[in-house]
Design a protein around this nucleic acid. Structure first.
Length: 509
RNA sequence: GCGGGAGUAGCUCAGCUGGUAGAGCGGCAGCCUUCCAAGCUGCAGGUCGCGGGUUCGAACCUCGUCUCCCGCUCCA
């Protein structure tokens, strides 16, 4: 330990988004999709280290849900769903609006709303017939998807922008939230279906299948991790807003009347989970929705302070019985649960009802980005003494060991005297339990640095002493300090540090 | 969508008034190395984002276009 670096007075700074994007690419975390073709806007690929980190985050969420709760079970529903699903959920009608922009004020409006407002004016002026004609014409044009006709109608009606007072409009464009495709091998027989814009509906339509097959009683939850697809109007901020993204959703089914307390419960639990993972409390906040979505009775976001400001990483919604009732109506299949528990108020069973739902939905990619932003640090360190003293910058990822892509790197101090062989032996003894790597190339300092850059928490070094007494040094990423320990203790030592248990313990506060 | 900035080797960047493309780091091979991006030798690596135009000649001027970043706007 005598040659270990002196503990450094370290000043750390966080990275800008540009630093982080660059780091993510350089070290194999995130690449732009189809980069060699100039990329595809708002689509990204995860590289070798990125996929490990993301998988670890997903595993951690999955186990925190299904392993820790006997009344939460998982599902993996298909991305393709019956088209009526999206009618029921409100996505078809609610998110295919004709949009128009005013070129002077740069304001964007829904074309149909502009026309409806004008019709209302006509009506107010006593021109009832004119109002009706206008609405009928608009309806005809929208149904036939004649967007140019809609624009012409706006011009004919001399509708001007309330802000700029001009009629300098762009063309009317359809905002399509959902991506559509065809199912059916033969073109003429194929029908249009959508890539799901959220994973929740796969859970709702399976509500009874799961409840029965998993022998669950309300309250219980269904967890799912899966891809979802949305045509974003403006996709920005790296992987924060992607067209293809991954959601980690829990839909928790409760007895009507108890949704309030469950909403509070999950609000608390989910925030605690993010903190246990290493997102500091000061950089997390709740943000209540003022305007609620069509399905929600209460909604709150958990926001993290990214380099570009506080942004949502998870949403918690009290969805009531909206979704199940909608599916019950459209599918004509009862979506009821028979509750045999006795209601103390009446002395009878609660009986049949459509359960209420409390949803927690985390963006896996947003969580990944938050984790990366939080972990990325540039540290100014001072080394040596007196005239030898020098200041340099160390860039590292302070990832929680449980989510780090590589748990430990094993280095022979030098490539001779049987050290590489000893290192290989250690590597082989650990690789069944942990993702570890062995590196014998380059100077030891360079190898340490490479591991700092990808967030590897431990570097195990085989040196001369190892050959005599089977002990190694374990160098810690965050402090750069070293501990000497017997090879035989490595497995338990690393296992303790990277265990999900350390995180789960903090959830039970 | 609007405004601003950027795009040259794997990365970070230099490249003057238009005249055959550069550095550091990294990579590869070898030597040497007992603890924090060490040293020596050698090698490889570029359609200067892409496409037009001007010019004897374009990384540089010009027009267009794509992508990314920042700010605004928008967004369940």
């Amino acid at each position: 330990m005598s040659n270990a670096p002196k503990p450094a007075a370290a000043a750390t700074t966080e990275g800008t988004l540009a630093n982080i994007v660059s780091h993510a690419k350089e070290y194999g975390f995130v690449f732009q999709s189809s980069e060699i073709y100039d990329g595809l806007a708002a689509v990204y690929d995860y590289g070798p280290n990125g996929v490990e980190l993301k998988n670890n985050l997903k595993q951690l969420w999955w186990k925190a849900m299904t392993q820790l709760h006997q009344n939460v079970v998982g599902i993996d529903a298909a991305i393709f769903m019956h088209p009526l699903t999206w009618k029921a959920s409100g996505h078809v009608d609610g998110f295919s609006d004709p949009m128009i922009d005013n070129l002077d004020s740069k304001k964007r409006y829904r074309a149909d709303v502009l026309l409806e407002d004008r019709a209302a004016e006509h009506e107010k002026n006593g021109e009832l017939a004119r109002a009706e004609t206008l609405l009928a014409e608009m309806g005809r044009l929208l149904t036939s998807e004649d967007l140019a006709g809609v624009k012409q109608l706006i011009i004919d009606e001399k509708i001007v922008c309330p802000v700029s007072k001009t009629g300098n409009w762009t063309d009317v464009r359809q905002f399509n939230l959902m991506f559509s495709t065809q199912v059916g091998a033969v073109a003429e027989d194929s029908s249009q279906i959508y890539l799901r814009p959220e994973t929740a509906q796969g859970i709702f339509v399976n509500f009874l299948n799961v409840q029965k097959s998993a022998r669950q009683k309300v309250p219980f939850g269904i967890a799912q991790i899966g891809k979802a697809f949305r045509n974003e109007i403006v996709a920005r901020q790296f992987i924060f807003r992607m067209r293809e993204f991954e959601q980690m959703e829990l839909q928790f089914f409760v007895r009507p009347g108890t949704e309030g307390e469950w909403y509070e419960h999950w609000k608390t639990m989910r925030r605690r989970w993010h903190e246990a993972l290493g997102l500091p409390a000061a950089k997390l906040r709740f943000h209540d929705h003022d305007k609620l979505a069509h399905y929600a009775k209460a909604a709150v976001d958990i926001e993290y302070e990214f380099p570009f400001g506080f942004k949502e990483i998870e949403g918690i919604h009290s969805r009531g019985d909206f979704d199940l009732t909608q599916h019950q109506t459209l599918s004509k299949k009862k979506q009821q649960y028979f509750d045999a528990d006795i209601d103390p108020a009446t002395g009878k069973a609660y009986g049949n009802y459509v359960p209420f739902v409390v949803e927690t939905s985390v963006g896996a990619d947003r969580l990944f980005l938050a984790t990366l932003c939080q972990a990325y640090q540039e540290e100014t360190i001072t080394e040596g003494e007196g005239e030898q003293q020098q200041t340099k910058t160390r860039t590292l990822l302070r990832l929680h060991p449980a989510v780090a892509p590589i748990k430990a790197a094993i280095f022979p101090l030098v490539k001779k005297d049987g050290m590489p062989e000893k290192a290989t032996e250690i590597f082989n003894s650990l690789r069944h339990d942990f993702r570890v790597i062995m590196e014998e190339r380059d100077a030891i300092g360079k190898r340490y640095t490479r591991q700092d850059l990808i967030g590897t928490p431990f570097c195990i070094v085989v040196d001369g002493q190892t050959l005599e007494d089977d002990t190694v040094t374990v160098r810690h990423r965050d402090s750069r300090e070293q501990t000497r320990m017997p090879i035989a203790e490595l497995r338990a030592y690393i296992g303790e540090a990277v265990s999900f248990s350390r995180i789960f313990e903090k959830l039970e506060g």
